[in-house]
């Protein structure tokens, strides 16, 4: 299972060798395109919707870093996303921290949890790795349920104040908050892009493709795996903490295992192992949820059919297919 990215998404799987000047220019253009789209978006659509997409896109990008480039399938990403969202909400509401500090503390806690869980999980491979991450995430869920004083039980932490950025700028208004979320999202995207194309990222990809060979070349593969695991947890935490500020709430939904499933789905729909796929995936899934909300009781069936059709017809994902057609890694 761990080698899914290399075996099943042939054209999409990015290897650093393929990066030439043209591709790099294309990526730069796409980045600018995304930035421009983000600037225009709040004027043409509902800003809260775009902020939600950005939070989930960052979450999916973090997951894709782990699976698509690190070859590690985690079923427990909700733990970092959800716990960070709780910590951020708690810090903003009860300690009165300013939003940037609240988000940072959420991210820091997610990083720590990622370090502990990662150290345990990377000792096993494939499906067993996935199951350990799932089990550990279930414990995080249990912890959230058992500490209502901290998490508010299933009612969650509600009415989280958005506060003033750096103690100065009021972000209670959606438009004002939007720029903060957009900045966090673009920062996360650029960071992940950097990581993938760094020497560290190259080694990770090498480990993903053939771990014994990487070991024989003298790399301490476990150390690389742990670092990529922790990075992914931290970025998932960043996404979760930001979401808590956007929606002004943190709830059990975010730590539940179905959230871990949702992020896998977003990444697959968008294109596993591609750079921009998770963004497309998050956009599709979040819009779908939005649209389906008015569909009434057929939600489950429609969702199920989309799953089945995706798996049967386009396993490379949206961006994966485009990459195949254009013969360029995206």
């Amino acid at each position: 299972m761990a080698d899914i990215a290399s075996t099943d998404a042939p054209a999409a799987g990015l290897s650093v060798r393929e990066i030439d000047d043209g591709t790099e220019r294309l990526h730069r253009i796409l980045m600018i395109g995304i930035a421009v789209a983000l600037v225009i978006a709040p004027f043409v659509t509902y800003p809260v919707f775009v902020m939600k997409v950005m939070c989930f896109a960052l979450f999916a990008l973090a997951f894709n870093l782990l699976l698509g480039f690190g070859g590690l399938l985690s079923f427990g990403q909700a733990a970092y996303f959800g716990m960070a969202s709780y910590v951020c909400a708690y810090a903003a509401k009860f300690w009165g921290l300013s939003p940037e500090l609240a988000i940072l503390s959420g991210t820091a806690v997610a990083t720590l949890i990622g370090l502990v869980f990662g150290a345990l999980a990377i000792r096993r491979q494939g499906i067993y790795f996935a199951m350990i991450t799932l089990a550990l995430a279930q414990m995080a869920f249990f912890f959230s349920l058992q500490t209502p004083g901290f998490t508010g039980g299933e009612d969650g932490i509600q009415a989280v104040p958005r506060g003033r950025l750096f103690g100065l700028i009021d972000i209670a208004d959606d438009r004002a908050l939007y720029w903060l979320v957009a900045a966090i999202f673009m920062g996360g995207l650029l960071l992940i892009y950097r990581i993938i194309h760094s020497p560290f990222g190259q080694v990770c990809t090498a480990i993903r493709d053939n771990e014994p060979r990487a070991i024989s070349l003298g790399y301490r593969t476990n150390r690389y795996k742990l670092v990529v695991f922790v990075l992914s947890a931290a970025l998932a935490g960043l996404a979760g903490a930001t979401k808590a500020i956007v929606f002004q709430l943190a709830s059990l939904t975010d730590v539940h295992w179905s959230m871990s499933g949702e992020v896998v789905l977003m990444t697959l729909v968008g294109g596993l192992g591609t750079i921009f796929g998770p963004i497309a995936g998050a956009l599709v899934i979040v819009s779908m949820q939005n649209f389906l909300a008015s569909l009434g009781s057929w939600v489950l069936v429609v969702q199920g059919v989309i799953f089945v059709v995706c798996v049967l017809t386009f396993r490379e994902g949206i961006v994966g297919i485009i990459a195949k057609w254009s013969k360029r890694p995206l």
Binding site: M1, D3, I4, T7, D8, L73, G261, V264, L265, L268, S297, W298, V299, L300, V301, V302, Q303, G304, V305, I306, F307, V308, C310, V311, L312, R315
Partner: peptide
């Protein structure tokens, strides 16, 4: 999808579970 990674089998059956549940509901 038999010859693909078994993650796809999991996802396909997950989708089927949603459909079955939804229809009965």
């Amino acid at each position: 999808i038999a010859h693909f990674d078994h993650l796809y089998g999991l996802l396909l059956t997950f989708g089927l579970a949603l459909i079955i549940q939804g229809v009965f509901r």
